[in-house]
Design a protein around this nucleic acid. Structure first.
Lengths: 215, 215
DNA sequence: CAAAATAGGGACAGGGTTGTCCCTATTTTT
DNA sequence: AAAAATAGGGACAACCCTGTCCCTATTTTG
C-alpha cells in the first residue's frame, strides 16, 4: 500500500508508444497543475505500479504488445485487469483503433472516458476531464478533421509558434486586430503583446526568406 | 513550384494523431537544427503541401482515416502516392502496426526508413537519420522493451526530470558519482552541475513528501 | 580508522522568453 | 479625405532555467 499523503493528483499513463506516452503525460501535467504522473510502457510495469501506488486517474491504451491488438478479448482483458487493480480511480481509454462497440464494453467495465488518438488535440484532455466531472463520461470517437496544415520553424519561440498557428487559421472577414484580442483573452496577455509576437515571428520568417502564404 | 532558396531542411510529417504528429515534429526539429517542418493531419492536406512545396524529408504514417488501416493495399497506396509527388525526398514510414512484409513492400517503393511507433524513443530520430545517411536505410520493428517506469512531477524543470530519469535507472554497483560523470559527458555539462540538479530535484520531491523508492 | 561518497545547501552570472509600452510609415476601409 | 488597420521596429523589466563554483555535515566503503 502506498502513502497518499500529498495533495497531488496521482496519474498513471499506460501506453507503449514512447512519444505518445510522453505527449499524454505532458498534456496531463498541463491539465493538472499539481500532479505526479507515472508512465508505463507495458502492462507488466503498469501492474507493478498499480500494486505499489494508488492512483486517482489511469489512462490506458489497450493496444499493447504481448496482446493481440486485433483481438477484442485481449484488449478488454488489459482494461479489465487494470480496473480491478485500481477500483477507486477514474479510467480513460485511449486508442488508435476505436469502435463504438469497444466503448460500450469498456463502459460496462467502468471506464468513463474513451478517446480516439486522432481526436486528441493539444489541450483537449482538460475538456475531457471536465466533461467526465460534469456528465460522468466523455467519448470522442475517430473523427477526420479538416485541420489546416501546420508550420514549424526552428528559431521561433513557442509563443511565436502558437500565435502564428492561430493567425494562420484566421477566417476571411476577421481582422488581425480581432485575432489579437482573442489571443489576448485566451492566453491572458495584452492584445498588444500578441500583436508583438506575431510581428516578430513574421519578421523572423521574412529574414530567412520563407513565410507561408497567407502571411 | 516552390522556392528552395533557404538553407533549411524542409520536412513534412503526415500523421493523423495530433499528439504524435507534434511529438514527431519536435523530435525532427531537435534532430535538424535549421529546419522548417510542415505537419499534415490527413492525406488531402499532405497532397496540397507536396504540390506546393519541395521537401527533403517526408515522414509518413500510412494508417490514415479514409483508408482502411487493415487493408495492406490502402496503406501502400498512400505511401505510393506520396512518393510519386516527392521523388527527391527521403521517405520514412512510421506505423503503429508494423510488419516485416510491409517494410519490404515499402522498400521496393523507395522508402528508406521503417519505424514502429513503439520503438521510437525521444532522440531516436537522430540515430535513424544518421543510419540512413550511412547505410542507406534504417528499420526498427516493434520491440517490447523492458523500460523502467517513469516518474514526472510538476515542479521539476526539464533538466531535473531528465537527470532524475537517468539516476533512477542506475544499475546496482554503480555509484551516483559515476552517473554524474556519465551525465556530464552526455549533456556536455559539468559533473558537478548534474549532481546539483539531482540534489535539487530530490529536495523538491522530499518537500512535497513523495520521492520514488530508490531515491 | 581513513577516505570516499553522499545529502543538503547558498551565491551568482548568463541567456532566452515573456510581457508591457511606445514609436513611425504605409496600406486598406469607410 | 479621414479613420482604422497593418507592417516593422526599439527599449525595458521580470522571470525562469541553466551552468558553474563553493560550502559543511553525515554516511558508507575500503
Amino acid at each position: 500500500m502506498s502513502e497518499q499523503t500529498s495533495k497531488h493528483t496521482h496519474v498513471l499513463v499506460i501506453e507503449d508508444q514512447h512519444l505518445m506516452r510522453l505527449a499524454l503525460i505532458h498534456e496531463l501535467q498541463a491539465a493538472l497543475p499539481a500532479s505526479i504522473v507515472h508512465g508505463a510502457a507495458n502492462v507488466t510495469i503498469a501492474l507493478d505500479l498499480l500494486e505499489s501506488h494508488q492512483f486517482d486517474l489511469v489512462v490506458i491504451d489497450p493496444g499493447m504488445p504481448g496482446y493481440d491488438p486485433k483481438s477484442q478479448d485481449d484488449r478488454l482483458d488489459v482494461v479489465q485487469v487494470i480496473l480491478d487493480l485500481s477500483p477507486d480511480a477514474i479510467h480513460i481509454v485511449v486508442t488508435g483503433s476505436d469502435t463504438d462497440e469497444e466503448w460500450e464494453h469498456c463502459q460496462k467495465l467502468g471506464v468513463v472516458g474513451y478517446l480516439a488518438k486522432n481526436n486528441i488535440r493539444p489541450g483537449a484532455l482538460v475538456d475531457v476531464l471536465q466533461e467526465v466531472a460534469e456528465r460522468g463520461y466523455s467519448v470522442r470517437l475517430s473523427n477526420e478533421t479538416t485541420a489546416p496544415p501546420e508550420f514549424y520553424h526552428s528559431g521561433l519561440t513557442p509563443r511565436e509558434q502558437e500565435i502564428l498557428g492561430w493567425m494562420r487559421q484566421r477566417p476571411s472577414g476577421i481582422s488581425r486586430k480581432d485575432i489579437y484580442e482573442q489571443l489576448g483573452e485566451r492566453f491572458d496577455i495584452d492584445a498588444a503583446s500578441a500583436e508583438k509576437y506575431y510581428k516578430r515571428a513574421r519578421a523572423k520568417l521574412l529574414k530567412t526568406g520563407l513565410l507561408p502564404k497567407g502571411l
